[in-house]
Amino acid sequence: MEFIIISGLSGAGKSSAAAFLEDLGFYCVDNMPVALITNFAGLCMAGAGTGKYGRVALVTDIRGGQTFDELFQALDGLQEMHLDYQLLFIEAADEDIVRRYKETRHTHPLTRQGYSLPEAVKLERLALEPVRRRASHILNSTGLNLSKFRGELLRLFGMGALEESMTVSVTSFGFKYGIPIDADLVFDVRFLPNPYYIAELKECTGLEEAVRAFLFGYRQTTEFMRHLEELFAFLLPQYVEEGKSSLVIAVGCTGGHHRSVAVAHALTEFIRQKGYRVEETHRDISR
């Protein structure tokens, strides 16, 4: 079981880290009271066999003015339970944190005690230093956009092959019914020979071998697929490196029955062979 405890400075990105880990299949809990960590871990260990709690991440918020005995006792308790946890400490430069609070208009927890925002940030950093020293990983989010931040998390925890961190969805569609609104990339294959005008293929779909044999018997289809595969062999690792968790590729022809279906199916197989998690759908195949 993977068990990650996320702590660090307010405004540094703890909740964003939990949200990204949730996208990767972690069961995440935000703002977990320190006193409940060991009990929660025990419940997760008991349910790990079901697959639901195989990956767990929780955010715990402890700040200045408190002792850290309770947190450290919880960490020691996890070791006694033979749970191989990781403590991720997220921080950022004072200037970055102050700017983020100014932009979001959220209130730093310590400003409620009468401190100015810069003073609150400095006090919290000082108070959290004992936790920082116990951290398995320290992530500084200064200057990182969300994509780079997600990429750093991905590299830190090495969650299987990098390809598995992104889900690719390939869908075929018919232009006469509109472009899918969630598409990241759209390809128009209406330039390919149309099986619709072949009597014995008209009522078939691009999932049937006869249609695929017809389409891929033309040089322009095989040339197009070669270029398309080269493009995605280059693009997909770039999206993974950027921290993208999902990519929707839409392939369209006139009605969404023949050409787009066959090309989307072939592209799906290529992406699957590259090791990516890929889903295949055909939006308009039954229209």
Rank of each mutant, 00 (worst) to 15 (best):
L24H: 06
R277T: 15
L235S: 12
Q113C: 15
R287C: 13
K14R: 11
E242Y: 13
F40V: 02
E152I: 09
I179E: 01
A48P: 13
E124W: 06
L192G: 10
I271V: 15
M166I: 07
G77W: 01
S16D: 11
A17L: 10
K244T: 13
G25P: 06
R272N: 09
V211H: 12
S260G: 12
H227P: 12
G114K: 02
G143D: 06
L192N: 08
G64V: 12
S136I: 03
G178K: 00
Y196Q: 15
A46F: 02
L83D: 01
A199F: 05
E223A: 06
R105Y: 07
L128M: 14
T222D: 05
H137S: 03
T167V: 10
R99L: 09
D184L: 11
K52M: 11
K122G: 10
P237D: 05
S260H: 01
K14L: 05
K122C: 08
G255L: 02
F89S: 11
K202L: 10
Q113I: 11
F89D: 04
L236M: 10
E124A: 12
A92E: 08
M225P: 14
V278T: 09
G255M: 05
P195F: 00
L154S: 15
L58M: 03
K14A: 03
E280T: 13
F89R: 07
D61H: 12
L247D: 03
N31F: 08
L247V: 06
D23E: 08
F187R: 00
